[in-house]
Simulated scan of single mutants.
Amino acid sequence: MKILLYQRGEKALSKSGIGRAMKHQVRALSAANVSYTTDENDSYDLVHINTVDFSARSMAQKARKEGKKVVYHAHSTEEDFRNSFVFSNQLSPLFKKHIISCYELGDYILTPTPYSKQILEGYGITIPIQDISNGIDLDRFKYEQQKVDKFREFFEFSETDKVIISVGLYFERKGLPDFMEIARSLPDYKFVWFGHTPLASVTSKVREAIKEKPDNVFLPGYISGDIIEGAYSCADAFLFPSYEETEGIVVLEALASKCPTIVREIGVYDPWLIHGENCYKGNSIPDFIFLVKGIIDGELPSTVDKGYEVAKERSIEAIGYQLKDVYERVLGGNY
């Protein structure tokens, strides 16, 4: 059994969740001793596709013509396309038709969570769908003092500064305007949003939020490596007020770092994230302000150990064996 991980466009996607998921798959298959290639001109038995661009669509069609099996990884839905770029809401019905036509080229569909599986089934897709997490590299997010030091030095934060972080593109859907309002209400704390999107492509609400950001908000752009890993390790809270996700790899990163995690109470986190047990959930800006203050003041019980267990269940090694099982069943026709 040899798997083609179709990776064209990986560089362009490297700053997105899909890009990280693709990197995780390479690591996962290596950990599970699954033979794979990323060269589409190489021999293979099954192709695993993550993107919905036209080249990926052509790859799926080519594989089917050659009698090869296709596993399509559904990272995108109409719901999480909305409230992202300019005109995304107007284009979302067309996007939905496009992604359905792509996913239906698969013999089998993977998607990150039970929630996203339910959405795809609601589209009327009849191909077998299984939810498998995008996974998380636990070793990468172990506490290392040198990473913490690099983070604090980069921002010139002291050890007594109270720091709240978030990670994501500059999307309205990600809750960036809400993040700004929460920070405005808590001027004694430092708020850092890692990530970037060209302002010409974002909605007017996001542009206005960035233009009027309070002084205690820091927007360093996209940063990888020690600085962001140090941020996860020493931040007082990870606040992710996103309105829609198919999983949220950054949430797994926070949980793996044992960073107190606050998310919006939305369907994607059911049933794997539980309020007050392995995270905290809010529905509004006042909720998030209350939760941030409660965590920093020590008035709310810690959820980090249970949160780490959630990440551990989704380790790259565990995901590798789940993918191996899927490939073997698809190739054997047992699905």
Rank of each mutant, 00 (worst) to 15 (best):
R8Q: 14
R8N: 14
G9Y: 12
K11S: 12
L13R: 13
I18Y: 07
I18W: 01
Q25P: 00
V26A: 12
L29I: 10
S30D: 15
S35V: 08
Y36F: 15
Y36W: 12
E40F: 14
S43D: 15
D45M: 11
D45L: 12
L46A: 09
L46D: 09
I49Y: 12
N50Q: 13
D53K: 08
D53C: 07
A60M: 15
Q61L: 15
K62Q: 10
K62E: 12
R64T: 10
G67E: 02
V70R: 13
V71M: 11
S76W: 14
S76H: 14
T77Y: 05
F81A: 12
F81R: 15
S88V: 09
S92A: 15
F95C: 09
I100G: 06
C102W: 05
C102F: 08
G106H: 04
G106L: 05
I109C: 08
L110P: 08
P114T: 01
L120V: 08
G122C: 11
G124H: 05
I125S: 12
I127N: 14
P128L: 02
P128N: 09
I129R: 06
D131A: 07
D131T: 02
G135H: 07
Y143D: 05
Y143P: 03
Q145G: 01
K147C: 06
K150R: 10
F155Q: 05
F155P: 01
F157E: 03
E159Q: 06
T160R: 14
D161I: 09
L169Q: 14
Y170C: 12
Y170K: 11
L176T: 12
F179A: 06
M180I: 05
M180W: 07
M180V: 01
R184M: 05
Y189W: 04
G195Y: 04
T197F: 02
T197N: 09
S201R: 10
V202D: 02
V206H: 11
I210Y: 07
K211P: 04
E212P: 00
N216E: 10
L219M: 10
G221F: 09
I223D: 05
I223Y: 02
D226E: 15
D226H: 09
I227F: 02
I227N: 08
E229L: 13
G230I: 03
A231N: 01
Y232A: 01
A237G: 06
L239N: 02
F240G: 00
F240R: 11
P241A: 06
Y243F: 13
Y243S: 13
I249H: 03
I249T: 05
L252C: 06
L252M: 13
L252A: 10
C259Y: 00
I262G: 03
E265T: 04
G267T: 11
V268M: 04
Y269D: 00
D270G: 04
N278I: 00
K281N: 06
P286Q: 03
D287G: 03
L291R: 01
I296S: 04
D297V: 01
G298E: 12
E299W: 07
L300E: 11
L300K: 03
P301S: 14
P301W: 01
P301F: 03
T303Q: 10
V304K: 08
D305Y: 03
G307V: 04
K312A: 10
R314C: 05
S315K: 08
I316D: 11
A318C: 05
G320Y: 04
V326M: 13
R329P: 04
G332M: 08
